[in-house]
Nucleic acid binder design. Structure first.
Lengths: 204, 204
DNA sequence: CTCCAACTCTACACAACGTCGATTTTTTTC
DNA sequence: GAAAAAAATCGACGTTGTGTAGAGTTGGAG
């Protein structure tokens, strides 16, 4: 595996391999959309990136590693965008903002996120990545619930447990909707937002 | 190619093959728990059932077919039990009863149901089976919501769409909880019940 | 007994994975 | 700007797991 040392000097020395690596990940994302994880072979991946199978194994140890790297890249992008959103806001607004952001993310990276979810059971690394991401959402939802007056605490009817269930609801609902269309995603978002608000006691 | 399950049900006596078939499915369920779908090979399956790979292919055309049959068997059992539960009841009671039944199902068949969910994307037959099952739940939830006063209709904030989201919430929450323990399942159930009731406007 | 269907096995062909060592290309160093 | 080092590429190989083919075995009905 090539070392990933960041900026060394004023001259950004981008190796040829870095290009290839990105090409492989891009190909992977494309293929995931076109044929899905199972049908995608290492040969396809290599061909898409313009190299042979042998060469691909210089960059990644396995098909799983490629996908893991792709998930990592996507998830990182996701974190960045999440950080950007202000959290200290009136609860109702916060919910709306969060849902809009979520729609954007799924619109953009639906297939990769679906794959990540599918593989998080069988590929421990991806499971790690995804559960970490989920935790971020869960703590965010928890914060909103508590600010809206839901009691904090470890019991099943208190904020953290509810946030967890709501997170899974959103994940799963978007998972399905993103297979259909952008419109479905919007509707799904409205529904989830409504349930979230109701659970928080913010009924209109 | 030998004809498959079409005319078998008419037989009076139980053939040796029916035993084998069941043995294969039982083995499949065991292996699913022990090693998971990917790690389970057709050889393992055959060995567990006391036959060779070749013989197994007499009964099932592929590994996927075996799992599909197992899912079908499990799901059928699930339908039977669901039918048994009375539907015409006071909403609050209906919710509690439904959740208790769901806990039982996951306690009993957690691994198979998790596998069904995982494969419903890649194996169309399983997807069919599972989405049909989900529809049963969704209509049941819809009925409860409407009886509790939630408006009927196709809009994202009306009963059917909400029922769908709640169904996915329950599915996903139980999916995760059933990997942990029976206790987690119970807690998950309480949380889901609470959110369901709140969404229905049945706040205590 | 014999015949047919149900059942079982071994052997084979194939596809995809991951490894290896040799070789070529790119980058660094002097 | 050439030699040395590192990075990148290739093609061939061994392995594993899948699904198929065809031959052989059992057991019950006529």
């Amino acid at each position: 595996m090539p070392a990933h040392h960041s900026a060394r000097s004023r001259r950004a020395t981008e190796r040829k391999g870095d290009l290839r690596e990105r090409a492989i990940l891009d190909t992977c994302e494309t293929l995931l959309v076109q044929k899905g994880y199972d049908a995608m072979t290492v040969g396809d991946l290599a061909q898409g990136a313009g190299i042979t199978r042998g060469a691909l194994y210089f960059y990644f140890g396995s098909k799983q590693e490629v996908v893991t790297a792709l998930v990592a890249r996507t998830v990182e992008h996701l974190w960045e965008r999440s950080r950007a959103t202000a959290e200290a806001d009136e609860p109702r607004r916060a919910v709306t903002a969060a849902m809009r952001r979520t729609v954007e993310l799924w619109d953009e990276h639906g297939p990769v996120m679906r794959t990540a979810i599918d593989l998080s059971l069988t590929v421990p690394e991806i499971g790690e990545l995804w559960s970490h991401t989920a935790d971020l959402f869960i703590t965010a939802i928890t914060a909103v619930l508590e600010r809206a007056g839901v009691q904090a605490g470890p019991e099943p009817e208190q904020a953290p447990a509810m946030a967890r269930a709501l997170c899974w609801m959103i994940e799963r609902t978007f998972y399905h909707a993103s297979q259909e269309s952008h419109e479905e995603l919007q509707k799904a978002s409205s529904t989830c937002e409504h349930i979230w608000l109701t659970s928080a006691g913010l009924t209109a």
